[in-house]
Design a protein around this nucleic acid. Structure first.
Length: 419
RNA sequence: GUGGCUGUAGCUCAGCAGGUAGAGCAUCGCGUUGUGGUCGCGAGGGCCGCGGGUUCAAGUCCCGUCAGUCACCCCA
């Protein structure tokens, strides 16, 4: 593929995040971390790869497992896989360590899926997520959605729509799936060669975007009509809770989400400002049986994941979370051999100032130019004449005014002006 | 995985119907001697994604490939 002269490129579907753009990532992750702390969620970090079977529990009929998993055998012949989503590894950790329930954790992690890349859809993508394991209280569903809705709001996003649905419990869903499947069979002609998919996972067809199916899908039986009393009551409680805290939502009966493990409440935030089909900003739902399937204790749970790359796209579309201007407080210019600058910088940085310099022997003009390019508020020049007098020249780059400050006072002098 | 579109300097793009590459921004230099940002002038930088084909001649046409992108699939 790559000839000898060709430069290496990041693998298909992956991207580098570089400064200054990376500063937006810090801001977003910081905002999430801060919100997580306010909601009582602690950071969890699980391995980037797990035993293949851990992720396989996500569901045998989900594409993420069936055809998108980066799985491999290691040198010890263990079958492993790169994490395709955040929940499975977290639940595995819960099952393994059995922390006190409810276990409320958040993460920021890269996920890997072998699929055809597009904008907002990558083979390695990052998700911010949270999981609350060990409670079936619908109050925690509400808290979870509040967590994520407020996160978007605090970033400044307004074009975000929340869809909710209930997948019901196992019994109600089984009943519904039967009805749905026979409905698809009645319309086998429309579904054509995709009928096999309908047979394997009837729910999957519901959220299809194929235009020629839309009328058939619209008339399909609704899961809500088959919910057990208990499931319906729980779904009601969630809706009431959301209304009570002024979180607008739409009930979307066709929202089924991609993973087989979901039960009861499911939700998804869509970025209205996002073009294209990649408009799901984040989503999640309950997975009340997953812990047991991982060999853990029975533990009802709920969680969500939110893609950082798509979040950035949404931020671009709404012109929020801009790339911050990179600035330093002070730029040190040394007209001698450059070693004094090192000492001064050590002092400045030790005093909490953001300070930088040029490297290598650069003439004074270039150094001042570099100071300006760095967005420095002050330029501090170390030069023989001033050094003899025990002072340094300090120039306010905003107005060009220059003064002399005693060398021993410089850190204090600047610190008091740059806080 | 299926189908469509795109691929030219670091970035954004122009290059008309095939005749051996241009702009803006960025970078660097100069406008002397210890001072930036603004301004003026100048310079460097492109196997035109890669490989093959058609042609006297290809950035420009054809095929393949890689990558990006759009729709489907699926999802964040």
């Amino acid at each position: 593929m790559a000839s000898d002269r060709e430069v290496f490129r990041a693998p298909k579907g992956t991207r580098d995040v570089l400064p200054p753009d990376s500063a937006r990532w810090l801001e977003i992750i910081g905002a999430f971390s801060d919100r997580a702390a306010r909601f009582g969620y602690g950071l969890v970090m699980t391995p980037i790869f797990e035993h293949y079977e851990v992720f396989a529990r996500v569901g045998a009929s989900t594409d993420v497992v069936k055809k998108e998993m980066y799985d491999f055998f290691d040198k010890g012949n263990r079958r492993l896989a790169l994490r395709p989503e955040g929940t499975a590894g977290t639940v595995r950790a819960f099952a393994e360590h059995r922390p006190m329930a409810p276990w409320k954790v958040w993460y920021c992690a890269a996920n890997f899926r072998y699929e055809r890349p597009q904008e907002g859809r990558y083979r390695q993508h990052w998700q911010l997520g949270a999981e609350a394991i060990g409670s079936d209280d619908p109050q925690i569903d509400i808290e979870m959605i509040d967590f994520l809705a407020g996160f978007y709001r605090e970033l400044g996003l307004t074009q975000v729509q929340l869809m909710v649905n209930s997948m019901g419990d196992a019994e109600s869903r089984a009943r519904y799936v039967d009805v749905l499947l026979s409905y698809w069979r009645e319309h086998a002609e429309t579904l054509g060669d995709e009928m096999a998919r309908a047979e394997q996972n009837p729910l999957r067809i519901l959220d299809s975007k194929r235009p020629d199916w839309q009328t058939v899908i619209a008339d399909a039986p609704k899961l809500s009509e088959y919910l057990s009393d208990e499931s319906a009551a729980q779904f009601d409680a969630v809706q009431c809770g959301l209304t009570a805290i002024d979180i607008p939502f739409t009930i979307e009966p066709r929202l089924v989400r991609g993973f087989d493990y979901y039960t009861a409440t499911v939700f998804e935030f869509q970025g209205a400002a996002l073009g294209g089909a990649q408009n799901a900003l984040g989503g999640g739902g309950r997975y009340d049986k997953l812990s047991e399937e991982m060999g853990g204790p029975p533990a009802a749970a709920i969680g969500f994941g939110s893609g950082i790359e798509r979040l950035l796209l949404a931020c671009d579309a709404e012109s929020v979370v801009p790339v911050p201007e990179s600035r330093v407080d002070v730029f040190v210019i040394d007209t001698m051999d450059g070693s004094d600058a090192g000492v001064v910088l050590h002092e400045l940085r030790g005093n909490g100032l953001r300070a930088d310099r040029s490297y290598g022997s650069k003439n004074v003009k270039k150094q001042w130019s570099a100071a300006s390019a760095a967005g420095a508020r002050f330029g501090v020049m170390l030069a023989p004449r001033e050094a003899e007098a025990g002072v340094v020249a300090v120039k306010d780059l905003r107005n060009g005014e220059q003064v002399e400050v005693a060398r021993i006072d410089i850190a204090q002098w600047l610190a008091s002006r740059c806080s």
